[in-house]
Design a protein around this nucleic acid. Sequence first.
DNA 1: GTCTATAAACCGATAGAC
DNA 2: GTCTATCGGTTTATAGAC
Lengths: 188, 188
Amino acid sequence: MTTPAANSRTEQRRRTEARILDAAAQAFLVAGYERTTIRAVASAAGVDAGLVMHYFGSKQELFRRVIEAAPVPEASGAPEQILAALADRLASEPVGSLALFRSMLTTPEAASAAGEALARFQEQIAQDIPAGDAGLRAAIISAITFGVTVSRHLLKYDELATADPAEVIDLLRPCMIALTAQPPAPAG
Amino acid sequence: MTTPAANSRTEQRRRTEARILDAAAQAFLVAGYERTTIRAVASAAGVDAGLVMHYFGSKQELFRRVIEAAPVPEASGAPEQILAALADRLASEPVGSLALFRSMLTTPEAASAAGEALARFQEQIAQDIPAGDAGLRAAIISAITFGVTVSRHLLKYDELATADPAEVIDLLRPCMIALTAQPPAPAG
DNA sequence: GTCTATAAACCGATAGAC
DNA sequence: GTCTATCGGTTTATAGAC
């Protein structure tokens, strides 16, 4: 053991670091990477800007720490599984994922991180789709999920932002069934 | 008439202004509002940064001029009309619209401009949907259109970016039909 | 009309005091 | 561990020369 009472030194640092991370996640989520300043994050966390740099080294690293909390979505190609996963995201999307989505169109690092996560998501879905164009079908499912999630949580267009997740899922069920279905044999 | 030969003064200015607008649209489309600098736009247009300011007054006004060229999408609630409109966007989306999409998650002015355009788009669709939840259905259709368009033209995920628009439309047809259909009478 | 020079503000990052 | 002071760089925007 190093210190019998695990407090007053590393413990306080851990708490301050967590407070900074929370403030950073909120700032990146609301304003995106470019418009978020180290100074604003420090102010929101109740500390100095120099301390944020001392802990995380750079703005990029701070952002990386925020979005690494974003879980890789797990799903299969079964429509009800896709819908269940989407229902979870509609109910409450993790702040790290939302911060990543917010900046993925304008910040290169966010774009690559989101690209890798979405690529894995699509591969998982495509594996279970019995069709020659499974890749394209998975990409469309991914695009729909992306569009609905962003519209609800980031753009906050009221119809989708205030909707009951169950209603949205019910309306999207025919879509997912059709997109994952075995295509009919060609007539020619 | 002011000048018999409409050249050498206002005409040259008009051409230079158009060249700056083209360069600005391309820069905003590729890098987004925040990361695009007046200097880079001026350099790409072959002029000085001061001249860009002299013509457009501010970076915000330059951006406004770029995105005002984005046409409001016209559509009705008929599935084939929605699909036809989407097919056009998949084939070639105007640069002004793409510049608007690129920044709509991170730049407040872009967010409000896109919000108004999408609100009109949703209203047009909702009018023709014979269902109590027409607003939500229109919002989902709008979200799907947004997700597919962004995935293809901005994120450029290869499956969607290189796909034949006709194939994408065929795969989305059941979605749009279901989303615009008359819902069955409740069984209870 | 076009460009040069510069002002004024802000940022990320560093060094060092306490 | 936390904060102060500051450096160095970049930006928008302005004023004025040519």
